[in-house]
Amino acid sequence: MTARMLPKNRIEEFVGRLLEQAEVVAPRRVEVGDVFYGAVASAEEVAWDYGHAVEPLKRFLLPQRETMLRYSTGDKVRVEAELDEQERVFLGIRCCDVTGIGVLDAMFGGDTPDPYYMSRRERSTVIALTCLQAPDETCFCVCCDAGPFLAKGYDQQWTSLPEGMLVEVGSERGEALVRSNDDLFDEASVDQVAARYRLAREAEQTFGDFKSYIAGAMSKLSMNEVDPKVWEQAALRCMECGGCTYLCPTCSCFTVTDRMEDSSGVRERHWDACLYSCYAREASGHNPRPEREDRLRARFFHKISYQWAQRNGRQACVGCGRCVVGCMAWAHMPAITEGIRRGVMT
C-alpha cells in the first residue's frame, strides 16, 4: 500500500486547490439538519463528522431526471445530444457509496457504454472516507463486502487520524492528485498505517444487529428455490413507493419520455422502479408481472442473484441501509433476505 498523510492543517488548502479545478461534491448539512452529498464552496462546508448521507452519490452520475436529446420538429428534424462535462471530485464519500459506483460502472459501461453516465464518470475522482464506527444503526456493509474500509474501488481512501488524513491511493487518478499537490502530502509512518488496520478492525465491531443474510438468500434465489409464500407475504409488506430503488446506490432503472415545448422536443430520462405495476406493462396491455409478488421476486433476483452478480462483478447490495430507512413498509433488503432464509416473512 502506498499511503500518505495529509496533515490536518493542510486539508483546507488541498480542498481549495481541488475547487480551482473541479466541482467538489462532499457531505454537507442542509437546512434542517439532514446531510446530503452536494457541491461545496469551501472545506469549511464539509461535514467530516457526518453519519450517513440521506442519499447515495447516484444523483450526480444518474440524475433523477436528465435531458438526453433536444430536437426540433418541422420541415427538417434536427437532433442534438447534451452531455454533462463538468469535472467533479467526490470527497469524503462513504465506502458503501463508493462500492455502489462500481456496480453502476458495470451497468453503464460494458460493450455499449452509456455516454451520459460515462461522461460524468470519466470526469470524476472518488475520495472515500472510511467509517471509524457504524454511521447508522441500519448499516450492514460488513455483510456485503462494502465497508467500513475498502480494499479497492476508490481513487483515494481517507482515514481520519488525530494528526490528519491517512491517504491510501487506489488508482492512477488518485496518484496524480497526490503528485500534483506533492507539497501538501507527507509520507505516512508505519505506526499510522498500523493504526488504519486497527481502526478498521475496531470499526467492524461497532456494527449493530442489523444483518443481511445475503449469501443464503443469493443461493436460494439463484437456484429458484425461494418458497413462493415468501413473495406473497412480502407483497403485503411493500407499498410500491419505489423508495428502496431510488435510495439504492446501485439501482439504475430508468424510463424515457418525450415532451414538447412549442415546436421543439426534449427527450428525458427519469428514474423508474421495477416495483411499479406499470414498469413491465406492454403497450398491448399485457403485463408479464401483474402482481406485486412477481415484481418483488424480479427485483431481488436482479439485486442479489448469483447470475446478476456474475454479470455485474458483484452482488448489487452494498449494505448502506438506506432501504431500511426509506421503506414505507417492511420489504427492505434485510427483511427480505431474512424472509428468504427462514421461509417466512416476519
Binding site: M107, T112, C253, F254, T255, V256, D272, E282, Q307, W308
Partner: peptide, 16 residues
Amino acid sequence: HMRCGIGKCNHCMIGD
C-alpha cells in the same frame, strides 16, 4: 416493454 434497447434501462429484463 423496452425503453433503451441496449440493456441499460432494465425494463425488458427476464431473469438474468
